[in-house]
Design a binder for these strands. Structure first.
Length: 272
DNA sequence: TTCGTCCTGGTA
DNA sequence: TACCAGGACGAA
């Protein structure tokens, strides 16, 4: 669910609210969310450390703690990271609570139980992050990088855009939207793209992610920002989950195909 | 590279 | 009742 724009929105919203705050207690309601870690071990390790820095890398949220640990959060499909007053009504599907001094708590709520919260020693997070490709909105993400990493691959371009080792942060929604903006059919073999098409795709990826961030992410059902608010980008999508509706450009019907096990939405007339 | 799996709930 | 869902990993 949460892709780069959603995670960016969460982090930008929470960063000023949790920076410098200290952890006073923790609760684990479903141990799978912390990889089966013993609740007492989890608590002993975190309590007393303060949040020095909060950042995002790809779809990961990173909380750097001043005691030498890093909290890595990945929300996967339905995870939410919410900052709530302690006395606030329980959020449904709350799996982990990290209590902060000052009567608030960070809650990991997650309907489908895929989200993960991992504690590592500072430095160890680099092994996880090293597998990720460049940030799509950074200078490291160039047309050359995109074309060089994928230009010889035979797989459909749609499938490859979801590979986090190629670029970090794109998911199913924004991949479909980027391919629409670029006018590329999701089944196109990557090795068939021309220089000009790589340029269009590169530009389209950036544009669609920037618009997603501007609209504070896409909410279909589960996504909320760090304060529980839905995003607004679902009203601006051109093709994603619009099967049968009119293409904004040509008016023809949007089609849906399953590619690499993921649903893909596209306009067969505008995307070739 | 593709498929199943981890899970639960909403919708057709 | 069947199918669908925003992610990612490991096995075949």
């Amino acid at each position: 669910m949460p892709e780069l724009p959603e995670v960016e929105t969460i982090v930008a919203g929470l960063r000023p609210l949790v920076g410098g705050r200290c952890i006073s207690d923790t609760e684990i309601h479903w141990s799978g969310s912390v990889g089966g870690m013993d609740p007492a071990v989890f608590r002993d390790r975190l309590v007393g450390q303060c949040i020095a820095r909060m950042t995002r890398r790809g779809k990961f949220i990173l909380l750097y703690l001043d005691g030498g640990d890093v909290l890595l959060v990945h929300l996967r499909m339905t995870g939410r990271l919410l900052l709530r007053p302690r006395e606030a009504e329980a959020d449904p599907y709350t799996r982990v609570i990290i209590g902060l001094e000052g009567n608030e708590e960070l809650r990991l709520a997650d309907l489908r139980k895929f989200a993960r919260l991992v504690v590592v020693s500072q430095g160890e997070e680099e092994a996880v992050l090293a597998k990720l490709g460049p940030e799509p909105l950074s200078e490291d993400f160039t047309v050359e990088h995109l074309a060089n990493s994928l230009g010889k691959r035979k797989a459909p371009i749609k499938t490859l855009l979801l590979d986090q080792t190629v670029l970090a942060g794109l998911g199913n929604i924004y991949a479909d939207e980027a391919l629409y903006l670029a006018g590329l059919h999701p089944l196109r073999r990557a090795d068939s793209l021309s220089v000009e098409e790589w340029q269009r795709l590169h530009e389209a990826i950036r544009r669609t992610l920037e618009e997603g961030i501007r609209n504070r992410g896409t909410t279909f059902s589960q996504y909320r920002d760090g304060e529980g608010r839905p995003g607004g980008h679902q009203h601006c999508l051109n093709v994603y989950r619009r099967t049968g509706e009119a293409c904004p450009r040509c008016g023809g019907p949007i089609e849906r195909l399953v590619i690499g096990g993921r649903s893909s939405h596209f306009c067969p007339r505008c995307q070739v």
